[in-house]
Design a protein around this nucleic acid. Structure first.
Length: 827
RNA sequence: GCUCCAGUGGCGGAAUCGGUAGACGCGUUGGACUUAAAAUCCAAUCGGGGUUCUCCCUCGGUGCCAGUUCAAGUCUGGCCUGGAGCACCA
């Protein structure tokens, strides 16, 4: 064995051998239980960054650990390869997105292999390849048939820089999720998926996800935004047969309505405006349109509005009140109209004060009386109804139901559950995506492509240098086609699908990646899924994770699979920071993984990226930390190479041990138990690694006491070293494999069984008894493990220190915690 | 404003059930080896005070204030700070 540790040499050798020998090939059939470990697949942007390294290392360690524990582990990888950057690169370098993408995939594949990841490359999935997007299109058609994919004209989010529309989830604080430029509203006819049909299931099933963090579940639940209330319809006094419906969560306050507001974009607003008010309303609406989303949504902006001139009648008491338009009412939520109760809603209160609209108290607090003259903000707490006719004296929580019921009985309202979630806008006016497989026939209208004609291929005769429209529209061969119904001329849809569609089902395809007859075999998908452990960034808490859950539920309803949640356990890993800031090119604080591989090797990179923080927390990259990990691996290498003569792979431990050797055997058992438990307990790799170090230190310390090695010593030493490299194998994959073979084994260490511990040996032979007086530690006494409570008590009371503190005082109580502690209470 | 998460040395962080606070590492300091350096190894490292001074004693200490308990980083209540998500959602 070489005296020095040369990772680059070792790593290359093993990577090649694992590939040649298909060490990580996963058969579908196996008598072992299955385990599906998955990282969120990368976008092939060009090079791996440290976030990737962290993500894939975490999942790889989990996969290898589970494999050693006896599972048939599925650990695949693929490429989320449709999307804008490829198209932008094509425009800049006058190349083709497919070429650019292929090159990136090739480079990143080689990087992934350098990291020593245990992927089954036979199952690689690439979303931009026709053999994949054929099935993306097929799934779209199934949704279309079910009425879940539909086209409508709507106010949509438009990113001018990206030249396309965006889904609501892709607008962050009024800005494009990708390029961060301000998003505008446009009225366009676009394709949507009816995710709102699944709002209730997406919300309720969150409860089933015990293996997900609360943070992600709350984010999803906030995003879905369920609220319970009522729709109430108000007749317009001046217009016969015209009604304005409102959505409210406070039907208990209907007797306090003093005006009603419709959004500036409300569809009937012109009808509701009197001749005298036409001009001011028109101006107000024009102004509102000019404002950006961000200005409009700012909560501390002073509320404005104008009256329409017409009035509504309150069906509960016949009162009349004016209709206004104000931009604090949102056209896309509820009915686009709000009943205003200034006394019991902060926004209405501010608005009424500004425009001198009347106030009326209808909810009274239990402990005091409200006075209009003393109110300087709305009363929004619980209370008792007043000024509310037959409902007076009722608790407001009960009145909600009673009042809505009255509206239902009398035909001017109903109970209504409202969601914040909107349907998913999936059209993109871009080239590099899966074409939406529909066409427009002059005679038959919107016609889906026939399934047997799939895939609708992306054309290659396109001009990527065009500005202001999608390159796909420049193709001479793509647009014109034949209607499958009437045989007449039809024009293809030129919009492509949001790439989040491609990534909403890729994890299913891994179960059956090469199937060219169906998107996947049902039995295979039911066997491998759901994913046992999913690992990825928190930035997908809503986007990808919500969409994937939606897809899974749809596919279940379509009968394509039998489960309704795709990811059983979710680990959202923290960001990789450098000097306290997120690594980014713009800040110039990135660290190139290639450089680390070259200088230290992949094992050091893997070890370090797991060592300093638990996976869910942010991780601060430090050069000194890398150096420290590299030193540690050298230390392990030396431990073996300098003591090769004393190592024996066929060691035995079946003889009585000396005191010292017994201690080391116990330390090894304690380490095995601790490490196994730390991994089982939320994958705390940082403490796992500290235990590697502790064990290594203990072995060195043990050697330090030896002047020569007896046979017994050699056996104990071999047991300790072999256990150590096995425990390290999931992390330092090459180093462990190399040492394993140096010791004379022919198999791969990665196919070995995980170390087992003996419960009797996984503890020290002696215990340290902690003696407290009144809860303060006063003494520590070594005691035998076999001592019972009475013995421990007596040992403690015999202590000189204890006597010092108890002298002249009376002992009120003695508490004994077996094998650990005695607390003496004195007065 | 609502919801969730977090707060422990110079730093990253550790501490199954309430039971020795600061594991392990980084950094720093001192030492050994060396002509020297690198590498390696050894030792010290929460703060204040004391002492018979390399051994030990003592007090304080896990964001703040209370509480429960023999015992609180851990549990309860109320705050403060930071991060994240949602947000004129009626």
């Amino acid at each position: 064995m070489k005296q020095g540790y040369f990772p680059q040499e070792i790593e290359k050798k093993w990577q090649k051998r694992w590939e040649d020998e298909k060490t990580f090939y996963t058969p579908d059939e196996s008598n072992k239980p299955k385990y599906f470990a998955l990282s969120m697949f990368p976008y092939p942007s060009g090079k791996l960054h440290m976030g990737h390294v962290r993500n894939y290392t975490i999942t790889d360690v989990i996969a290898r650990f589970k494999k050693m524990q006896g599972f048939n582990v599925l650990h695949p990888i693929g490429w989320d390869s449709f999307g804008l950057p490829a198209e932008n690169a094509a425009m800049q370098h006058s190349t083709n997105p497919a070429e650019w993408t292929d090159e990136n995939i090739a480079y990143m594949t080689q990087q992934l292999k350098m990291l020593g990841l245990s992927y089954d490359w036979e199952r690689e999935v690439t979303t931009c390849k026709p053999e994949y997007y054929k099935w993306t299109q097929w799934l779209f058609l199934q949704m279309f048939k079910k009425g879940l994919a539909y086209k409508k004209e709507a106010a949509v989010n438009w990113c001018d820089k990206c030249g396309t529309v965006l889904a609501n989830e892709q607008v962050i604080d009024g800005k494009c999720w990708r390029c961060n430029s301000t998003v505008e509203k446009k009225y366009l006819s676009q394709w949507f998926l009816k995710i709102t049909d699944y709002a209730d299931r997406l919300l309720n099933d969150l409860d089933k996800l015990d293996g997900w963090g609360d943070n992600v579940k709350t984010m999803q639940s906030n995003w879905i935004g369920k609220s319970e209330g009522a729709i109430l319809r108000f007749k317009v006094k001046e217009l016969d047969g015209v009604e304005v419906p409102v959505y409210t969560t406070r039907p208990d306050t209907v007797y306090g309505i003093t005006y009603l507001v419709v959004a500036p974009e409300y569809k009937d607003i012109e009808k509701l405006t009197t001749e005298e008010n036409k001009k001011s309303v028109k101006e107000y609406r024009a102004n509102a349109r000019k404002m950006t989303e961000i200005e409009r949504l700012s909560t501390d902006r002073i509320k404005t509005g104008v009256p329409l001139g017409t009035h509504c009648i309150n069906p509960f008491n016949g009162e009349e009140f004016p209709l206004w338009t104000a931009d604090y009412a949102l056209v896309e939520y509820g009915t686009g109209a709000v009943m205003a109760v200034p006394t019991h809603d902060e926004r209405d209160f501010a608005f009424a004060k500004k425009y001198n609209l009347p106030l009326k108290i209808v909810i009274s607090p239990n402990d005091r009386e409200l006075k209009l003259s003393e109110m300087d903000n709305a009363y929004t707490e619980e209370g008792i109804l007043v000024n509310s006719s037959e409902f007076n004296g009722m608790k407001n929580s009960e009145a909600k139901k009673a009042i809505t019921q009255k509206a239902v009985n009398e035909g001017f309202g109903e109970f209504k559950t409202q969601y914040r979630l909107r349907d998913w806008l999936i059209s993109r006016q871009r080239y590099w995506g899966a074409p939406i497989p529909v066409m427009y026939c002059e005679k038959c209208g919107v016609v889906p492509e026939k399934e047997e004609n799939l895939p609708v291929m992306l054309p290659t005769d396109v001009d990527f240098s065009v500005v202001g429209k999608s390159p796909i529209t420049t193709s001479k061969t793509f647009k014109d086609t034949v209607c499958p119904i009437c045989g007449g001329h039809a024009v293809r849809e030129t919009d492509t699908m949001d790439t989040f569609i491609c990534s909403s089902w890729y994890y299913l395809r891994y179960a059956d990646a090469k199937n060219d007859k169906e998107c996947f075999n049902k039995n295979k998908v039911n066997h491998w899924l759901p994913v046992d452990q999913y690992v990825g960034g928190i930035e997908h808490a809503i986007l990808h994770l919500l969409y994937s859950r939606f897809f899974t539920k749809v596919l279940k309803d379509l009968g394509l699979l039998d489960f309704d949640e795709p990811f059983k356990n979710l680990l959202t890993q923290g960001m990789v920071l450098k000097d306290g800031a997120k690594m980014s090119k713009s800040k110039g604080n990135t660290v190139d993984p290639d450089e680390i591989f070259q200088n230290y090797g992949a094992d050091t990179a893997r070890l370090f990226i797991l060592s300093d923080s638990p996976p869910a927390r942010d991780f601060d990259w430090s050069d000194a930390g890398v150096e420290g990990c590299y030193k540690f691996l050298n230390r392990v290498w030396r431990l073996v190479s300098e003591n090769m003569n004393f190592l024996n792979k066929d060691y035995q431990l079946s003889f009585p041990l000396t005191r010292e050797n017994d201690d080391l055997v116990r330390i090894v058992n304690i380490a095995i138990k601790g490490i196994t438990n730390d991994i089982a307990n939320d994958f705390q790799f940082n403490t796992v690694i500290s235990k590697y170090r502790e064990l290594t230190n203990a072995i060195y310390e043990w050697i330090g006491k030896k002047s020569e090695f007896s046979n017994e010593d050699k056996n104990v030493f071999s047991f300790a070293v072999i256990s150590l490299i096995k425990l390290m194998a999931p992390v330092t994959v090459h180093l462990s494999e190399e040492i394993w073979h140096e010791l004379g084994y022919n198999t791969s260490i990665h196919s070995e069984e995980w170390c087992k511990w003996d419960e009797n040996l996984a503890k020290a032979s002696k215990i340290t008894l902690v003696v407290q007086i009144n809860g303060k530690v006063r003494d520590k006494i070594e005691a035998n493990e076999s001592c019972n409570e009475e013995d421990l008590k007596n040992i403690a009371l015999r202590s000189d220190k204890v006597k010092e503190f108890t002298d002249g005082k009376s002992i009120a109580k003695v508490i004994v915690v077996p094998k650990k502690l005695v607390n003496i209470v004195v007065k």
